[in-house]
Design a protein around this nucleic acid. Sequence first.
DNA 1: CTGTGCGGCGAACGATAC
DNA 2: GTATCGTTCGCCGCACAG
Length: 275
Amino acid sequence: MPKVFLVKRRSPGVSVRSWDELPDEERADTYIPVGLDRLLHDPPEDCRSDGGSSSGGGSNSAGEPGGAESSSSPRALERETPESGDGEGPGGHLAEKQRPVARSKIKFTTGTCGDAALHSCDLCGKAFRLQRMLNRHLKCHNQVKRHLCTFCGKGFNDTFDLKRHVRTHTGIRPYKCDVCHKAFTQRCSLESHLKKIHGVQQQYAYKQRRDKLYVCEDCGYTGPTQEDLYLHVNSAHPGSALLKKTSKKLAALLQSKLTSTLQGNANLSEGEEEK
DNA sequence: CTGTGCGGCGAACGATAC
DNA sequence: GTATCGTTCGCCGCACAG
């Protein structure tokens, strides 16, 4: 399709993403917008995530007229809570106003609500096999989002959701199309692109895990292994939070590997010099 | 055992082409 | 107006760390 890779130009908040002008091939790897620095220290008042739209994350869609779906779903219930706006929801205070109609993210799940489900949610009736699943689900009903985006203030219940969201600000697009080099922030976007544009159907079973891609959220570097990423961060971003988060066990393992590798290289170069 | 990180799925929505 | 594609995000299952 001639629709040469759309470059989103949408909400005002997003327009600050100066990298929009770049072709995807160029922004594929790492793309730290020029204004990022400024954003970090002085986020524009009206800045909001694009989807930002969606208001404070899960809580959106409050009064959505919602289709038939929402009314019949347990989710509908959970969505009825008045959204953000009240300032509680971090996302709320920023996001709301711009998009009049909140999006509804109603999701129907099949698996857990079966005979094996022992723990049910008092608010929406949804059932889970494990207590911790229910515990986490309960956060969806919570108006207060624990994880806030430092760029736009939008809140998320899940750290990974926030991390994923932040990529929309940093421009990091780890998933690249081998055919046309267009890059995407999420794997499913890439897979969708491959299927629709290039007719490449991924050979994966439903819900089958793909190879994990290790992404440096500081610069967009991607590596095939955790060790690879650790080595990268260790050398390129010594102060990165990732290093602190890496488990001590793993860090020690990787560190010893690193030193032995360096040692090996040193010995190698020494040997070469002696020649 | 619980909390959390991550991947995956699916839906809403925006932008563009026709 | 409709179709298509890309973007974003809510939320669940799995796996691992503590």
